[in-house]
Design a binder for these strands. Structure first.
Lengths: 326, 326
DNA sequence: ATGAAAGCGCTAACAT
DNA sequence: ATGTTAGCGCTTTCAT
């Protein structure tokens, strides 16, 4: 009845429970013969250690708590990468979803109840003060959002470099009239705007910034402004993929892409990869973001000093919306 | 040091641990005065019960294990709805993500290690035999996939009805020449095709099925076939939203939507709601799917008989890609 | 290398 | 209504 316990395995293998524990944690202190015998007994019974008991018995839970937005596909990528990063550090992940009907603080609270050793928050919207409060009780690392809060570490993509890569790609193709569709006051927007502007100036070209925003609608609206303000531009860098998709939808009515106009997005979302969109874009390095987040959390736990604001370079994903100017 | 335990709260409130336990589970057996005093003491210390210990102490974990695809936004909706459904039944959720680098069986295994009472698998790809094996040790309910496996309950959307709703919507608008872009051998495709065909026949109209598939590309390709095979059709029901988006991308080059052609998708994905797409579509009822999944799992736990294949009616989401024929 | 025994922080059955 | 006591299934000293 019920699942076999450590006791059952010990009995079958003819050893004490302690030994079974040693074997299953592969800790030192058991002969190879015993190890084999215990494992065989365990396998025969279909034994699997009870994770709850394991957590309770240990001083350290070796659990990393992660909150994520269940709708953001970028968070999906990060979660996947975090599993890998955590595992190689001997940690397990506790997932807690954030959704319209499930607030971030609830999600965090439930992680705390599991006694996670550290918190990794993906794109949190909590106020800096709330984040700082969390950081007082355990290491707290914020991923993909630029915030300054005492004791909180942040790991994010270097958006200034991302914009630079976009512009340099267009320069290399031979473009000189390059406009930027702005992201308004969306997080990341100032950095991306700066990267664009600096790179243009370094190339002794005149920056031209068209107001915009993060949604498809705002991209579509920006397309109309663009046609008025920068009719002679041969290329644009757009704040993000969503906006770029809206922009493309309108712009294609009067321009062939990429023959007459090159367009480059940002984020490398799923929609950018769709074959009928096939948008050149800038990708965030999720494996590195995840690895750094994990490393930072563990460093804090170990009492090692950390870099409170780490920035990871993104990469360019060339697709078919960019090409040489005609 | 460390977080306060039940012992600390008991000491501060001047009662025994058992009373504190009673109060925090709000179980009967404590006077209102005591209850208030304990709660006050707990609040002062910032006490929160240790979830691990709670799990271990209880005979029943009151934990529902959920596997989901971290990339599927539909799964995101379901997870959110499951939180709600589980909570109102006094259960908590344990989430385990499935991703390219994290197999479904791994995800399930980790859930089992937490001693979840039941498993809720979202769109699993495990073989029926594997599912049946799981169902032997605990209630196992499959959501959003039609499978037959002994002991496994499935909860899914009634796709035949979904297609019927789509066709009826078009009939109500006055269309009579309605084609269907097929989904090939994708799960759900036969049901949707049947729903279309039956509804057409019931209206004494001739069904016309154009081969297709679940991706944007296949939708785009189907658009070309459609123009050849059904040039006089005034409306189409497309297998799913992704395919519909590809279809629209091509069809708009020669037809105005909805003036010359009405298009209706299926799934109500995020992309369908995008304002520049604004696709009329069929939505799955995630709250009900979640509620039924939970209810079914709990019924199995209670030993109550269950309906092994439950089907939930979808609803029509009218947007701007459908309108009366000219 | 192996075993005995004391927790981990709760829940739950029982006694008062 | 309140307190006592024995687990839950592990981990972790500490002996042997």
């Amino acid at each position: 009845m019920g699942r076999p316990t450590m006791e059952d395995v010990a009995a079958l293998a003819g050893v004490s429970r302690a030994l079974v524990s040693i074997v299953y944690r592969d800790a030192p202190g058991a002969s190879d013969a015993t190890r084999a015998r215990v494992l065989a007994a365990g396998a025969e019974l279909g034994y699997r250690p009870d994770h709850r008991a394991r957590l309770l018995g240990r001083t350290r839970t070796r659990l990393l708590g992660v909150t994520f937005d269940v709708q953001a596909s970028f968070h999906g990528d990060l979660v996947e990468a975090l599993y890998t990063a955590a595992e190689s550090a001997g940690y397990d992940l506790a997932l807690s979803a954030v959704a319209p009907s499930r607030s971030e603080s609830r999600a965090v609270q439930s992680l705390l109840d599991y006694r996670c050793e550290a918190l990794i928050l993906l794109g949190p919207t909590l106020k800096p003060s709330a984040l700082a409060a969390l950081a007082e009780s355990q290491p707290t690392v914020v991923v993909a959002r630029k915030v300054r809060a005492p004791g909180v570490d942040v790991v994010r993509t270097d958006d200034t470099t991302g914009s630079r890569l976009a512009v340099e790609h267009l320069l290399a193709l031979g473009h000189t009239k390059i406009a930027h569709i702005d992201g308004g006051k969306t997080p990341g927007s100032p950095e991306r705007r700066t990267g664009y502007r600096n790179t243009m100036r370094a190339a002794r070209l005149t920056p031209l910034i068209v107001p915009g925003g993060p949604t498809e609608d705002e991209g579509a609206r920006a397309a109309k402004t663009f046609l008025d303000d920068a009719p002679r531009a041969t290329a644009v860098t757009v704040f993000n993929d969503r906006s770029a998709v809206g922009f493309l939808d309108i712009i294609r009515q009067s321009r062939r892409v990429p023959d007459e106009l090159s367009v480059i997005g940002y984020d490398n979302t799923t929609v950018a990869a769709l074959s009928h969109i096939d948008l050149t874009t800038i990708a965030q390095d999720t494996p590195r973001l995840a690895a750094h987040a994990t490393t930072t959390a563990l460093a804090r736990l170990a009492g090692t000093p950390t870099t409170p604001d780490q920035t990871i370079p993104p990469t360019l994903i060339p697709r078919t919306t960019t090409g040489p100017p005609r």
